[in-house]
C-alpha cells in the first residue's frame, strides 16, 4: 500500500509540475463537444436528443488521447524498468498509474461535463445520471485503456494503433453510459444501466491491472 501511495504521489507531482496536460484534455473535450452544434445545426431539440451520446463520445476520445503517455514517458527514460524492479508487485504499480490517469483526466472531465450539458441543452433531470454514469464509467475507461497503453510500448506508430486497440473495448461502457442518461430523460429508472456500469468497473478493477502488468512485462523485457 505504501508503494502504491508513493507512486501515486510521484506521478501526481509530475502531472502537476507539467500542468498543461490535464488542462489540454479538458480543452479537447470542450472543443470536441462544441463542434457538434456547428455540424448538426443549433436547433435545441436536436441537440438535447444527441447530448448524452455526444458528451460520452467526446469523454471517451479525450480519455483515450492522454492514454499514450500513461507508460510511454516512463518507458522512454527507463524509469518504468526501475518501477518494475522495486519490491512492489507490478500490478500495484499499474493500478497506481491508472489512478493517476483517472485523477488527471477522468475527474476533470466529470467536472466539465455539466457545463457542456448546459451548452448542449440536456434536460435538467439528465444531469445527475450523467454525472453518476461518468463517475462509474471513466475509471473503467482508464483501466481498460491501460492495457492498450502497455501493449504499444516500443511499437512503431503507437498513438494511432492505440485507438484501434482500445476503442472497440470501450463500446460496452459507452452503450450503458448513454442509455442510463436516456432512460432518465425518457422517464424510466437508470438503475439497471448504472448497476451494469458498476459491474463492468468491478470486473475491470482486478483484471485490467493484471493484464496491463503482463503487457508491461513484455514491453520492458
Amino acid at each position: 500500500m505504501r508503494g502504491f501511495i508513493q507512486i501515486v504521489r510521484r506521478d501526481l507531482h509530475l502531472a502537476l509540475r507539467q500542468g498543461m496536460d490535464s488542462l489540454m484534455v479538458v480543452a479537447f473535450f470542450v472543443i470536441a463537444v462544441v463542434l457538434f452544434p456547428f455540424g448538426v445545426g443549433p436547433e435545441p431539440n436536436t441537440l438535447a436528443r444527441i447530448a448524452p451520446g455526444v458528451i460520452w463520445v467526446a469523454a471517451l476520445l479525450s480519455s483515450m488521447l492522454s492514454l499514450e503517455r500513461l507508460f510511454q514517458t516512463d518507458f522512454e527514460d527507463g524509469s518504468l524498468e526501475l518501477l518494475a524492479l522495486q519490491p512492489v508487485a507490478l500490478e500495484i504499480t499499474v493500478m497506481a498509474k491508472v489512478s493517476v490517469h483517472w485523477l488527471t483526466t477522468g475527474l476533470p472531465l466529470i467536472i466539465a461535463a455539466p457545463l457542456l450539458a448546459v451548452l448542449m441543452n440536456l434536460p435538467i433531470e439528465g444531469f445527475v445520471p450523467l454525472i453518476i454514469a461518468l463517475s462509474l464509467g471513466t475509471p473503467a475507461l482508464s483501466l481498460i485503456g491501460a492495457i492498450g497503453a502497455a501493449l504499444i510500448l516500443g511499437s512503431r506508430r503507437g498513438g494511432i494503433l492505440l485507438s484501434l486497440l482500445v476503442l472497440p473495448l470501450y463500446i460496452p461502457v459507452l452503450i450503458f453510459g448513454v442509455s442510463a442518461v436516456d432512460a432518465v430523460i425518457g422517464g424510466f429508472s437508470a438503475k439497471p444501466q448504472l448497476l451494469i456500469l458498476s459491474g463492468i468497473l468491478v470486473a475491470a478493477l482486478p483484471l485490467c491491472p493484471w493484464a496491463g502488468a503482463a503487457a508491461v512485462r513484455q514491453g520492458i523485457e
Binding site: I147, L151, G154, L165, P168, L169, A214, A215, Q218
Partner: peptide
C-alpha cells in the same frame, strides 16, 4: 515481441 503483445490483446478481446 509482437506475437506476445498481440496474444495478450487477443485474450483481453
Amino acid at each position: 515481441r509482437g506475437a506476445k503483445s498481440s496474444s495478450i490483446l487477443a485474450l483481453v478481446g
